[in-house]
């Protein structure tokens, strides 16, 4: 069964660029691009080429931050979303780790069940939303269930891919020196699979978040997704975009932080860069 590479699709995959100089150069180009887009957007909106009511403009978005952050409705939505993401992440990651490790280590179970997980990975999971709503209602529960499912699927797939990274020769050493099951897991499988486990946790968090926001966007009566829907419907595009950007920023920060943690903890890897 083909498994998506655990190396693919990382936030900031560009940081894998070889030399420090070219990395700095890439950063300059990226910043220039972003600044360019922002400036162009502002200009187009001010000159009326694009309609400010639909597209807003960068300066309005910045101005919208302080009132948003002092709006109790927004703060409540943030809290609600954070809670749902946290719950989804916890449930989905715990389940995904367990199932992933079991499927990774038991060839028979893997042949039997892994195709189901892969099929789930390939389906647009939003299709399940109506059914989930039917069972769990319009509240935060639906968002948590949907977020957990997304997290679970992505964590499972990446953990299985991680376990595949464990090298047979290392398992052979454990066998030759008669390691107990626990020692084999603790000293060989866990560290050997750790690059995949790190990726799994990151994808789990990201997809848990996506799941929660999508659920809120379509069904909920509270949360960030819900607010974005309301603001968009009321042509408060600046508020909607501000919320989206703020949330993206948080996610990017978490992702970058996680990347650093991973680099530090897997610095033993032969391809690691200091």
């Amino acid at each position: 069964m083909a498994v998506p590479s655990v190396y693919a699709g990382r936030l900031g995959a560009s940081t894998r660029t070889r030399r420090g100089t070219s990395r700095a150069e890439a950063r300059v180009w990226r910043t220039a691009f972003i600044v360019g887009v922002v400036v162009l957007w502002e200009l187009l909106a001010r000159t009326g080429v694009i309609d400010e009511r639909f597209a807003s403009k960068p300066s309005s978005i910045v101005m919208a931050v302080p009132p948003l952050l002092s709006d109790p409705q927004v703060l409540e939505a943030l809290g609600m979303t954070l809670y749902a993401v946290g719950a989804s992440f916890a449930i989905g990651t715990a389940g995904g780790m367990l199932v992933g490790v079991i499927l990774g280590l038991q060839p028979m179970l893997r042949t039997a069940y892994f195709p189901i997980v892969m099929m789930l990975l390939g389906t647009p999971k939003s299709l399940f939303l109506p059914v989930i709503m039917l069972f769990f209602g319009l509240g935060v529960e639906s968002a948590i269930v949907f977020g957990s499912i997304l997290t679970f699927v992505h964590v499972t797939v990446n953990v299985v891919a991680g376990v595949d990274l464990v090298e047979p020769k290392h398992l052979m050493v454990a066998k030759a020196y008669r390691a107990s099951r626990w020692k084999r897991f603790r000293h060989v499988i866990l560290p050997g699979a750790s690059p995949g486990l790190f990726t799994a946790i990151w994808h789990g968090l990201r997809n848990g978040f996506t799941g929660v926001v999508i659920a809120q966007l379509f069904t909920a009566t509270a949360g960030i997704g819900y607010l974005v829907r309301v603001y968009s419907n009321n042509f408060q595009t600046d508020r909607a975009l501000t919320l989206i950007l703020m949330v993206s920023l948080v996610l990017i920060l978490v992702g970058t932080g996680w990347n650093h943690v991973e680099k530090r903890l897997t610095s033993w890897r032969p391809d690691a860069t200091q």
Binding site: M172, V173, K183, W268
Partner: peptide
């Protein structure tokens, strides 16, 4: 073993002790 099979995530001293640890 022919391909030495050291554990890349353990330092050299830990690697030497790994047989004993496993046993």
């Amino acid at each position: 073993f022919q391909d030495y099979s050291l554990f890349p995530w353990k330092n050299i001293l830990e690697n030497v002790g790994m047989g004993l640890t496993f046993a």
